[in-house]
C-alpha cells in the first residue's frame, strides 16, 4: 500500500473534519445568537407577468370550485377546462385557488394576497363560486332557519362580494368574470319551499350586483337543480355530483365567446 495515498487520504479527512466542526459550531451560534433580519415584505404587484399567448383561467371560491363531490375530482372547473381545450386552439392554463368551506369573509382576505392579485392580473377568464357556505353554513343554517338572520347574512355577503369584485376589476379590467349562482340543495326537504324563496332572492341580489360591473356575468344554476335535485347531488346531499358539475360546466361553456 502506497504510503502517500494513506497520508493524503488522512489529510483530506482531517481537513473535512475541521470544516464540519466549524459548520456545527456556526449552526449552534447562529441558532441561538443570530440577530433577526428585517426582511421587507413584497407588496407591489408591479412585477408584470409576461403576457403569454395561452389562455389563463383563474378559479376562486369554495368547494364547488374545488370539485368536492365529484368522483373524478374535476368539478365544474375541470369539465369546463376539458370543453375549452376541445374547442380552443390555444394552450389553456388553469389556476384553481378554490378552498373548501370558504366564506365571503375569507375570500375577501384571500383576494388581497399579493400572489393572488398577480394571478388575477394575468387571467383571461375568472370563475367565482361563493355564497353557499355563507348561506347554508354547511347545512346547519337550515336548522336555524330564520328570515331576520338571513337578511343580515345576505347584506354582509353582498358587501363582501362588492369589495371582491372591485378588487378583481382593479387588478384586471379585461378578463370576463363569471359569477356562479347558488342552487338549493334542500328543495326536496320539508322547508324546501321557503329555502328556495331565500335562494331566489339571494341570486337576484347577486345578479344585480354583478350587473354593476363591466364584463361580469352572473350564471344561474338554480333552475338546473330544481326538478330532480337528488339526481344531481352527491351523497352528502349538499355538493353536486359528477352529473351536477357537468351541468354547471355546460352552462358556463355556453356563455363563452371566442
Amino acid at each position: 500500500m502506497n504510503k502517500k495515498v494513506i497520508k493524503s487520504v488522512t489529510l483530506i479527512s482531517v481537513i473535512f473534519c475541521l470544516l464540519w466542526l466549524v459548520g456545527l459550531g456556526w449552526a449552534v451560534t447562529e441558532y441561538y445568537a443570530g440577530k433577526p433580519d428585517k426582511i421587507q415584505e413584497k407588496t407591489n404587484v408591479e412585477r408584470k407577468t409576461e403576457k403569454k399567448d395561452d389562455l389563463h383561467i383563474v378559479a376562486i371560491g369554495d368547494s364547488l370550485t374545488r370539485g368536492t363531490g365529484d368522483e373524478t375530482g374535476k368539478g365544474y372547473v375541470g369539465f369546463l377546462l376539458d370543453e375549452i381545450k376541445e374547442k380552443s386552439k390555444q394552450d389553456v392554463r388553469l389556476t384553481n385557488l378554490g378552498i373548501s368551506g370558504q366564506e365571503s369573509d375569507q375570500l375577501k382576505e384571500q383576494i388581497q394576497q399579493t400572489e393572488v392579485k398577480r394571478q388575477l392580473q394575468s387571467a383571461d377568464m375568472i370563475l367565482v363560486t361563493m355564497g353557499g357556505n355563507d348561506l347554508f353554513r354547511g347545512g346547519q343554517g337550515l336548522l336555524e332557519f330564520e328570515n331576520a338572520d338571513i337578511e343580515e347574512i345576505e347584506k354582509k355577503f353582498l358587501e363582501n362580494m362588492n369589495f371582491i369584485f372591485q378588487q378583481i376589476r382593479a387588478s384586471n379590467s379585461e378578463a370576463n368574470v363569471f359569477f356562479i349562482g347558488l342552487y338549493n340543495p334542500f328543495s326536496d326537504l320539508e322547508q324546501g319551499k321557503e329555502m328556495s324563496a331565500v335562494v331566489r332572492h339571494w341570486n337576484y341580489q347577486s345578479a344585480e350586483l354583478s350587473a354593476a360591473f363591466p364584463k361580469m356575468v352572473f350564471v344561474p344554476t338554480f333552475d338546473l337543480f330544481e326538478l330532480k335535485v337528488n339526481d344531481y347531488l352527491y351523497t352528502d346531499k349538499f355538493h353536486p355530483n359528477t352529473k351536477g358539475y357537468r351541468l354547471i360546466a355546460e352552462r358556463v361553456a355556453s356563455l363563452l365567446t371566442w
Binding site: 470544516l19 464540519w20 466549524v22 459548520g23 456545527l24 449552526a27 447562529e30 443570530g34
Partner: peptide, 16 residues
C-alpha cells in the same frame, strides 16, 4: 427569521 446565503446554510447543515 434570518436571511442567509445558501452556502452558509449548507455548511451548517453539514455540521449537523
Amino acid at each position: 427569521v434570518k436571511l442567509i446565503d445558501q452556502w452558509q446554510f449548507l455548511l451548517m447543515d453539514f455540521g449537523l
